[in-house]
């Protein structure tokens, strides 16, 4: 996953919900120095909570992304993030 262009990650999930797996794996995919390069905000919901898990990202160009972690698997999320990141990568290359 290309994480260079992410500036802000905020997640909210109940770890006891099976669907929260996607959020947790996304957090584990961030590089070791992620806390220095981006703002990461994680909210753990209590066990009885029925709220849906949520993941929202912000990119360097200002694009905000709300991803539905209940429907998309981790593969789908990586695909969505990479699609935008590749575009930013190309722009950066063209601008020099």
């Amino acid at each position: 996953m290309i994480t260079r262009f992410i500036t802000d990650v905020s997640t909210k999930f109940n770890p006891f919900a099976p669907r929260s797996k996607t959020c947790r794996i996304f957090l584990s995919l961030l590089p070791p120095n992620a806390r220095q390069t981006m703002k990461i905000n994680t909210v753990l919901l209590p066990r009885e909570s029925r709220d849906r898990s949520a993941l929202s990202l912000k990119f360097k160009d200002g694009k905000a992304m709300e991803l539905d972690t209940e429907k998309l698997g981790i593969k789908g999320i990586v695909e969505e993030v990479d699609r935008h990141s590749r575009m930013l990568d190309r722009q950066e290359e063209l601008n020099g």
Binding site: F16, R24, L44, P46
Partner: peptide
């Protein structure tokens, strides 16, 4: 990230 706890066979969340 603290996910949960298991105390005497019972499962607890972070709180």
């Amino acid at each position: 990230l603290l996910l949960g706890a298991r105390v005497e066979g019972k499962v607890f969340d972070e709180a």
